[in-house]
């Protein structure tokens, strides 16, 4: 029974492996996926900040736990134990310290949240009723495309040449969203049937799509991401085929993006097709 205190080693493994696994995680490719959005780094920064903070608390409390278990084992500590019902001052300290920390985190992140969620408005030049040319800044930015979640795919609708959605010249596509690089863009996301969630891991974007509501998301693909494709995931259970709802976001240069739209338009309106022998679509 004198060996009973060795049980505390079991608990010691928790901080050791717990921290160890996080240290090894980047090598295992289990870290936040590459961030290609402009605002993503604030989220990553917050994540890492909280990780260090909680990590420190985690290690400290777990170690204290193990140390006390080890030290005050009944066999190695047969002497009368401390008899106390608590300490008022200690309680005050360990109430105020965490409270302050938590409040700090809370306030620290509000900006990042607002930046992500508040409506983007674009200044629009117009002539007012008094005939003075001015800038109106309360016009919501026009969306670059509308993405509609549907069991089990993402339907994408570009506004077409007239720049207005839901007209006859709209360009339609499925699961394959193209966006221009280095431009802050707005997407309207909708649902046709049930809840879906528009999740772009690499852009740190996630927004549930609620039938009956129009949601908007904003992000900006940073330079250097052009020419690459990123996963578009559905993150809200939408039925049996939830896992199938896979889309792709491709970041294009401005010229590639225009070419893509043109190609889409050409495909949509072409009136002849080359014979199949040469139509190897690869």
């Amino acid at each position: 029974m004198g060996k009973a205190k060795y049980w505390s080693i079991v608990y010691l493994m928790v901080p050791i492996f717990g921290v160890g696994l996080f240290v090894a995680a980047p090598a295992l490719r289990m870290w936040l996926p590459a961030d290609v959005s402009e605002h993503g780094h604030t989220i990553d920064h917050l994540f890492v900040f909280i990780m260090y903070l909680t990590g420190a608390v985690f290690v400290a409390t777990e170690c204290a736990l193990v140390w006390y278990l080890w030290k005050y084992d009944s066999k190695s500590n047969p002497a009368p134990t401390k008899f106390t019902h608590g300490s008022h001052s200690l309680e005050v300290v360990w109430t105020i310290l965490p409270a302050a920390t938590l409040l700090f985190i809370a306030i620290y992140q509000i900006n990042a949240w607002a930046d992500q969620k508040l409506v983007r408005r674009a200044p629009v030049e117009s002539v007012g009723p008094d005939g003075v040319r001015g800038t109106a800044d309360d016009v919501p930015k026009a969306p670059i495309a509308e993405v509609t979640g549907r069991q089990f795919e993402w339907r994408i609708r570009y506004p077409g040449p007239d720049g207005v959605l839901h007209t006859r010249d709209d360009l339609l596509d499925v699961n394959d969203l193209h966006i221009p690089v280095d431009e802050e863009l707005v997407l309207v996301i909708k649902s046709e049937d049930v809840l879906h969630s528009f999740f772009l891991p690499n852009f740190r974007v996630k927004q549930d799509v609620v039938p009956g509501m129009k949601q908007k998301v904003w992000f900006k693909a940073v330079k250097g991401s052009e020419g690459r494709s990123y996963d578009l995931v559905c993150a809200e259970l939408c039925g049996w085929g939830h896992y199938k709802m896979k889309g792709r976001v491709t970041v294009d240069t401005q010229s590639d993006y225009r070419a893509w739209l043109e190609k889409l338009s050409f495909e949509q309106h072409k009136t002849s097709e080359p014979p199949p022998a040469t139509a190897e679509e690869q």
């Binding site: 795919e153 499925v174 199938k244 679509e281």
Partner: peptide, 27 residues
């Protein structure tokens, strides 16, 4: 159908049905 026809259905899915698009599978 021709191979191209089947390929297109697989790539685009069939709108308005449960047949989803498999556009993102390798060719």
């Amino acid at each position: 159908p021709t191979d191209d026809d089947l390929r297109r259905i697989l790539r685009e899915g069939i709108n308005g049905t449960a047949m989803p698009s498999f556009k993102l599978l390798p060719a």
